[in-house]
Each structure stands twice: as structure tokens, then as C-alpha cells.
Design a binder for these strands. Structure first.
Length: 428
DNA sequence: ATCACGGTTTGCA
DNA sequence: CTAACGTGCAAACCGTGAT
């Protein structure tokens, strides 16, 4: 029997979050920019109609924005993360088997639910989300994650579906009609690299792909594409993952609001990013055995010479201690820093992550020292969780960051900050 | 020939 | 006036040295 996997996806998620708290944005062109006010990452339907492209750099559509009064928002991740939590919490009530796939997407296993009319059940989910969070969502249902994604795409692009498309409930002819119609690069896992390779061997639509000659497949393509093709044929290859799965790699990186030349500023930014990465590490109860740091100048500025460098530092002992990690990373930074460049971005990657349950102490490590480190980090996290994350900071981060990212049009953190709520009240 | 490993590429939201 | 282009993950892929 076919499974019924649902993909719930919020429409224009960041823009919709802004609209929940600022009704003046309704029925108007709105664009939310990425970090550092860099690129368009969410667009209202009105903004899409005016021609703003996904990922388009802000400076490139600034004139268009001014001409058509497009409303620009900096990204407000405190708000979006909180709204996401609310959506996921509502969704959790509709299936015992939920995978939170991204900030605005969630898979639900609805196999065996309401055999006669799963679409009606899904429409009920949409109404609940709308009512309890104010956010519009679309739901696609299919026999695999890949088909659920495809069904969701159909629901989003065709208003007649009223937000829900159950691919499983379609007759074969109807399914085939869509497989012929939709562009191949809309399939989950097929991007700009794979597209030309597929066209070369005469695969032009999803139906071609679904019925590809297995021999050609074996000869020319990877296991990933095979899995995708199985999934198009109703055979599950990508199972739902539990919410408890831990990250194998943790990153924190940012572009600077202005170009940095001084070593001191780079040190402070690296210290800050290490702090954030270590917080994520502890939140999932893990330790790391390797820290990687990198710095680079702008890859877009052709007038300045380009420089990038990075270093991987294997740690003598697995740790989650912010102070230890900062020490090693700053040692690494001294190795890769070159004077005379205008740095645009820095980042930190923790890898070789191990669960704290499987703690392997170093043969010569002091138990007492480890206990103190754990207590210190736990206390640090508790205070910052309770009183706001900037209550206790590491001195190496510096007090002010003149290089911090641009956020020129940021809305208040309506749901997570009392002071912002007061500001919001005055604005209205 | 095969493996383990690390760096690079690809894909996605 | 100018310059202004994000972030975080997984996993496949690929080259390398060791066996």
C-alpha cells in the first residue's frame, strides 16, 4: 500500500510573518532581505509580479523597489523562529510522526488517516494553522517525500486546489498530465548542475525521468538520483527523520556590515561566532573534536585583490567549552591572517561532533577540571537563557561591534521581547 | 584493488 | 557621490596515501 506523506509549507513564510503583526503590509509588494540586507529571500505575490527574483541582490532591485513602493524588511529571525515553533507545535497534533524539515516546512506521515478523503483532513490542518498562527500554508500529499514536495508545488501554483493537493488520490492520467507539465528542476534534489546532464540524454520532463532506462541510470548517475527516481515511482527511499537527530556539523558565519582591516576586529568576530556555535553544540548535548575557521574578502569586488584562507584545528580533547574553543580558534586565526586585505566575512565550523552520552575522556584528563568546565558552561547558558543572551558575554567578543551586519529595516521582535512590543505599540 | 580520510562540490531552503 | 551579492546543513564525490 502506498504511504501518505504530507509536506506542509508556509507561503512566502518571512513575508507572511511580517504581515501577521503589521496589517499595513497586506495586499502590497513586500520583500524580506537576507542577513546583512544582502539578497531577496522572501517575496509577496505582489513583489514577484513586479519581477523581484529570488536571491536577487538588494542593490540590483533598489530602483525598482523605489519606483513601485516595494516595502523592504530586514530579516527578523527571532520573530520567524518563534512563529515557526508555533506552526510546528500545531502540526504535531495532527500526526504522531513529524519531521521538521526547515524553518517553514514540515513532513507529516498521514498513512492510514481518513482513507476516503485525506484532502479534507489536510484542509482542516490549513485552517487550524491559519486560525492559530495567522499564517497561510499549502499541503502536498504523495507516496514519498519527493512526491509530497511535488504535490505541494502543484497546490502552491494552482489556486483551484485551495491549498491542498493529494497526488495519491489522482487517477494515473491526471498524475501523468502534471508529470509532463512541470519542469524537471522543480523536483526535490534536481538542481542547476543535474539539469543539463539530464537534457543531454533526452530527459526533458518528470515523466521521462520517472520511466528512465535503469541501465542508463546505472551507467551515468549517482545513488542520489536513483533514490529520487524510485521515489517518483512510489517507492520510499527517504524516510522521515525524528526531531531528536543531532547535527554532525555546526556552523556560524556572517558577512560584516562594513569591510574589516584590523586583526582585532577579526578576532572579536571569530570569538562571537565560536560562542554561538558552542551554544548550539551544548543545546544538542554534544562535544566537538575539530574546529575550522575561515576568513575571506569579497568575491564580488573586482577592484580589490581576493584573499581567503582557512584552518582546521584538531582538538586534543573533545570539548563544548566556549573559552577553550575561542583559545584554539584565535591561535588558528593568527596563522591565516594576512595584513592589508579588506575582509568581508568570517566563519566557524565545528565538526567531528560526538554525543555527550558517549563521552570518551582523554586518558590523562583531570575529572575535576571537566566537572568545573561543565558547571561553568551550564551556568553561563542558564543565565543567558533566563535573562537574555547578552547578559554574560565573553570579553574576547568585544563590547561593541562596529562591523555588525546591516539590518536597516528590522521589524520589532513582537513575540519574544517586551521592549520591542512596547515600541511596536507606539508605532501603531 | 581497496580502504580510510579529508577536501571539494552539489543541492536545498 | 559611490558601493552595495546570505547562511547552515547533509551527503556525494574525488584525489590521495596506506595497505
Amino acid at each position: 500500500m502506498n504511504r501518505s506523506i504530507a509536506l506542509v509549507d508556509c507561503n512566502n513564510f518571512y513575508v507572511s510573518c511580517e504581515r501577521v503583526f503589521n496589517p499595513k503590509l497586506k495586499n502590497k509588494p513586500v520583500v524580506v532581505l537576507s542577513n546583512n540586507d544582502g539578497c531577496a529571500v522572501a517575496r509577496s505575490e505582489e513583489a514577484k509580479a513586479l519581477g523581484v527574483k529570488m536571491g536577487e541582490p538588494w542593490f540590483q532591485f533598489k530602483r525598482l523597489a523605489e519606483k513601485h513602493n516595494i516595502i523592504i524588511c530586514s530579516s527578523n529571525y527571532a520573530l520567524y523562529a518563534d512563529m515557526s515553533d508555533r506552526v510546528m507545535s500545531v502540526l504535531s497534533k495532527f500526526s504522531p510522526n513529524q519531521e521538521i524539515y526547515s524553518i517553514d516546512e514540515c513532513f507529516l506521515d498521514l498513512t492510514g488517516f481518513c482513507k476516503d478523503d485525506l484532502a479534507t483532513y489536510a484542509k482542516k490542518i490549513c485552517r487550524c494553522i491559519q486560525q492559530q498562527t495567522g499564517l497561510p500554508v499549502c499541503i502536498g500529499i504523495g507516496a514519498s517525500k519527493t512526491l509530497a514536495k511535488l504535490a505541494n508545488y502543484i497546490a502552491k501554483k494552482n489556486l483551484a486546489f485551495q491549498g491542498v493537493c493529494n497526488f495519491n488520490a489522482m487517477v494515473i492520467q491526471e498524475q501523468n498530465k502534471w508529470l509532463h507539465k512541470i519542469k524537471i528542476e522543480k523536483i526535490w534534489g534536481i538542481g542547476k548542475q543535474l539539469l543539463p546532464k539530464l537534457q543531454q540524454i533526452g530527459i526533458y520532463n518528470i515523466n521521462d525521468l520517472k520511466n528512465i532506462n535503469p541501465r542508463i541510470l546505472d551507467l551515468k548517475f549517482s545513488i542520489s538520483l536513483k533514490r529520487t527516481i524510485y521515489e517518483l515511482n512510489n517507492i520510499v527511499c527517504f524516510k522521515l527523520e525524528g526531531t531528536t537527530t543531532k547535527k554532525k556539523q555546526i556552523t556560524c558565519s556572517r558577512s560584516f556590515g562594513l569591510l574589516i582591516t584590523s586583526f582585532k576586529s577579526l578576532e572579536q568576530s571569530i570569538a562571537l561566532y565560536v560562542t554561538r556555535a558552542a551554544e548550539k553544540l551544548r543545546r544538542q548535548n554534544s562535544y566537538t573534536r575539530s574546529i575550522h575557521i575561515y576568513i575571506c574578502t569579497s568575491p564580488f569586488n573586482k577592484k580589490e585583490s581576493y584573499y581567503e584562507n582557512s584552518i582546521t584545528i584538531p582538538l586534543p580533547e573533545q570539548t563544548d567549552n566556549t573559552l577553550t574553543l575561542i583559545q584554539f580558534s584565535l591561535f588558528g586565526l593568527r596563522k591565516i591572517y594576512r595584513n592589508g586585505y579588506k575582509y568581508q566575512k568570517a566563519g566557524v565550523i565545528l565538526s567531528k561532533i560526538v554525543s555527550s552520552k558517549k563521552y570518551q575522556p582523554d586518558l590523562f584528563s583531570k575529572k575535576e577540571k571537566r566537572r568545573k568546565s561543565n558547571n561553568l558552561m551550564a551556568t553561563l547558558d542558564q543565565i543567558n537563557t533566563l535573562m537574555g543572551k547578552k547578559i554574560l558575554i565573553i570579553a574576547a567578543e568585544g563590547i561593541t561591534q562596529p562591523w555588525k551586519m546591516r539590518q536597516n529595516n528590522m521589524s520589532p521582535r513582537y513575540t519574544t521581547n517586551w521592549n520591542d512590543l512596547i515600541v511596536a505599540n507606539q508605532l501603531i
